[in-house]
Simulated assay, not measured.
Amino acid sequence: MERQLPYEISYNTVAYWRKVENGFLWSVFICSILLQTFQIDCLKHSLGSTECVINLLNILNYFSIIGYGILYIAVEIIMQPMVASERRKGFIDNSLGTKLLDKPILNYYDNDSIEQGPYKMLVNCYENCFFTYNIIKVMLPKMAIKNTILFGLLLIFAYHGIKDNVVAIPFLQLFLSSLFLIELIYHIAFFFRLKNLCDKFKQIFSTPKSTKNKTIQDAIYMVLEYETTLAYNKSPNSNSVYKKLNNKLTEEWSCIKQNYDIR
């Protein structure tokens, strides 16, 4: 059966505009470095052609800053919460049999054999957490290398700009470097919070099935913890990594279900 995800188009739309948003951020990053280089050259040699390049870079830089600011508000503050709300509705529909969305989610969760109710909600949340944790774990080394290098480069250029009394660009570079550093810190914190949640899920499912009330308590608590962790994260998952790992993680999830007798 083909997968049916009612909010998939919305997710793809957010992913597209997030790429554009990141494109503006990279443009600001590149322009700030080029401006620094050309301004130092212009101060030393007073070249007219260099001044023209600086003016063009300034225009592109301002355009990129405005574009990034507008898209950040549109994507991260407006669009992303709306899509996250649709995802939560789909999760509840699939787990408890409600109809909060116009269409049901089909062939997305690997738990169709489990009866709808609090226990299925707990299992679905574990599956979500397991996939998210492993995707973040794969992303972590590349994220750390990329953001550390960019953070260092921007600090170096900011130092040279301050030394040469060019004020605006160094402060912009310091701001950009802080963005890269903050993204890395959020990603690391997100990784450890997910790891802790996966350990809690293992603890829950490693014990014999408890009473109905205990299952409801565990389901509500773990769903709230997972959703809070997602809301805390500021570093989006990589869709390409998800596609690359999907088959492998699906097999591992099947082994986990068998190991913990999840059915």
Rank of each mutant, 00 (worst) to 15 (best):
Ser178Cys: 13
Ser178Ala: 13
Ser178Asp: 10
Ser178Glu: 10
Leu179Asn: 11
Leu179His: 09
Phe180Ser: 06
Phe180Trp: 09
Leu181His: 12
Ile182Lys: 15
Glu183His: 08
Glu183Tyr: 11
Ile185Pro: 04
Ile185Gln: 10
Ile185Gly: 08
Tyr186Arg: 04
His187Pro: 02
His187Thr: 03
Ile188Val: 15
Ile188Tyr: 13
Ile188Met: 15
Ala189Tyr: 05
Phe190Met: 08
Phe190Asn: 04
Phe190Val: 05
Phe190Gly: 05
Phe191His: 10
Phe191Glu: 09
Phe191Arg: 05
Phe192Trp: 15
Arg193Val: 12
Arg193Pro: 08
Leu194Thr: 02
Leu194His: 04
Lys195Asn: 14
Lys195Ser: 11
Leu197Asn: 04
Leu197Val: 00
Cys198Ile: 08
Cys198Ser: 15
Cys198Pro: 00
Cys198Met: 09
Cys198Thr: 12
Asp199Ala: 15
Lys200Arg: 05
Lys200Glu: 11
Lys200Leu: 03
Phe201Asp: 04
Lys202Asp: 14
Lys202Cys: 11
Lys202Arg: 12
Gln203Arg: 08
Gln203Ser: 15
Ile204Tyr: 00
Phe205Asp: 05
Phe205Ile: 07
Phe205Val: 10
Ser206Pro: 02
Ser206Ile: 00
Ser206Asn: 04
Ser206Glu: 10
Thr207Asn: 09
Thr207Ser: 08
Thr207Arg: 11
Thr207Pro: 00
Pro208Val: 08
Pro208Tyr: 13
Pro208Cys: 09
Lys209Asp: 14
Lys209Phe: 12
Lys209Leu: 14
Ser210Trp: 02
Ser210His: 10
Thr211Asp: 11
Lys212Leu: 13
Lys212Asn: 14
Lys212Trp: 13
Lys212Glu: 13
Asn213Lys: 11
Asn213Gly: 03
Asn213Ile: 07
Lys214Tyr: 09
Lys214Phe: 04
Lys214Cys: 07
Lys214His: 13
Lys214Val: 12
Lys214Ser: 13
Thr215Asp: 10
Thr215Arg: 11
Thr215Gln: 12
Thr215Lys: 07
Ile216Gln: 08
Gln217Ala: 08
Asp218Gln: 15
Ala219Asp: 05
Ala219Cys: 06
Ile220Tyr: 12
Ile220Leu: 15
Ile220His: 12
Ile220Gln: 11
Tyr221Leu: 15
Tyr221Trp: 14
Met222Pro: 01
Val223Glu: 04
Leu224Trp: 02
Glu225Gln: 10
Glu227Ala: 05
Glu227Lys: 04
Thr228Phe: 04
Thr228Arg: 09
Thr229Lys: 01
Thr229Pro: 02
Thr229Ser: 08
Ala231Phe: 11
Ala231Thr: 07
Ala231Glu: 13
Ala231Lys: 14
Tyr232Val: 00
Tyr232Met: 00
Asn233Phe: 06
Asn233Arg: 06
Asn233His: 03
Asn233Leu: 12
Asn233Tyr: 03
Lys234Ile: 07
Lys234Tyr: 10
Lys234Gly: 02
Ser235Gly: 00
Pro236Arg: 05
Pro236Glu: 04
Pro236Ser: 06
Pro236Ile: 08
Pro236Asp: 11
Pro236Leu: 07
Asn237Ser: 12
Asn237Met: 13
